[in-house]
Nucleic acid binder design. Structure first.
Lengths: 183, 183
DNA sequence: CTATCAATGTTATAATATGTTTTAAGATGT
DNA sequence: ACATCTTAAAACATATTATAACATTGATAG
């Protein structure tokens, strides 16, 4: 295997597994640990990985551990479902989905200056207060229950429920319903 | 074999295999490594290949891997629409959407060992050959035209088209239709 | 026939990659 | 805080590959 191939694969492996020992990489590619150290140097310089004693960690995954968990349920969130709550001290809280986002909103209500959701189909960022909330649909997305989907346009929400069923609510109604279902 | 013929074949080989050693090329064409070096010089000058110690790499494949761009249309791709083509040399090519993925599949067909898509609604990774392809729907997702959406289950595809319109096809039919629409 | 040229091979030297050994630094347990 | 173990980094040695210079071959024109 060419050195450049190995270097690429090392980078890929680290990102996939998040953590790896130098000794493991040495065995995988059948080269000495010194060679692995040398392969890693440019990746460290570029900030792609972080080296700790005995191993390496993907720089992104470190961020993820610190930042990518839902502020309400502590689940890891996916970008396309994320619900963002901007507070009056410029801090943004991120919930894993509209379900958690609505519940968190109730807790923080008086400090919230902005509320952002994602359009379920187009993944565009939208104003969560003007969004249309679909509950009780037959499509399950493997996030929190009772499930809540957000749409920018009522038209899309209607077309969606035509096929997948469910009920459409504006922001405040969805807020009340979810809250009542959780107590 | 004529020198010019060998040079052409070297270029082709490098693009196919992505990586190649000088020593391998030397054996394949039964000429000295020095001759291979000389053959490669113009390709390097043209920027078609990148030479590293001991071998050569196809320039395109390096750029693509680094930049998160579609292997077919060179657009930056989004994870939830990505279409992945795993080749028999363990290299994975990534297209920005099913549209580009299908067209790329045609080019690489005999070398493809696996084909992965994402379920449009649930974002789960699915077998692209068993997926259901929705064309001509009214929902536009700001990727390549003619637009192609992939679903794991026919049921979901049907429910989707009930609201948003469009036609459902299995893999091979979608492949043919997209190809014919692009010529 | 031989001068010339292009293509290729050969050899010597330089550059790069890798491994090994030694020394320094960090982790761990008492 | 110290002893011990593990890992990192530096220095050196070795192996591999690249490059440049020169040699060989074969074709062609004069």
């Amino acid at each position: 295997m060419l050195p450049i191939e190995r270097k690429k694969q090392i980078e890929k492996l680290i990102c996939e597994r998040e953590h790896l020992k130098i000794s493991e990489l040495s065995e995988i590619f059948n080269v000495s640990e010194m060679t692995i150290h040398r392969d890693l140097t440019p990746l460290i310089d570029e900030g792609k990985i972080i080296k700790t004693f005995g191993g390496v960690t993907c720089a992104q995954s470190i961020q993820r551990q610190q930042q990518n968990t839902c502020v309400y349920c502590y689940r890891e969130y996916q970008k396309h479902l994320a619900y963002r709550i901007v507070l009056n001290n410029d801090i943004t809280e991120i919930a894993c989905c509209a379900h958690c986002g609505l519940l968190r909103y109730r807790q923080r209500e008086e400090r919230v200056v902005q509320l952002l959701a994602r359009d379920f189909l187009r993944h565009t960022t939208i104003n969560a207060k003007k969004a249309f909330y679909v509950l009780n649909t037959s499509l399950h997305i493997n996030c929190c229950q009772p499930q809540v989907l957000t749409f920018e346009w009522e038209d899309h929400a209607k077309k969606f429920t035509k096929g997948f069923g469910g009920d459409i609510y504006p922001f405040h109604e969805a807020l009340t319903i979810i809250y009542e279902q959780m107590i």
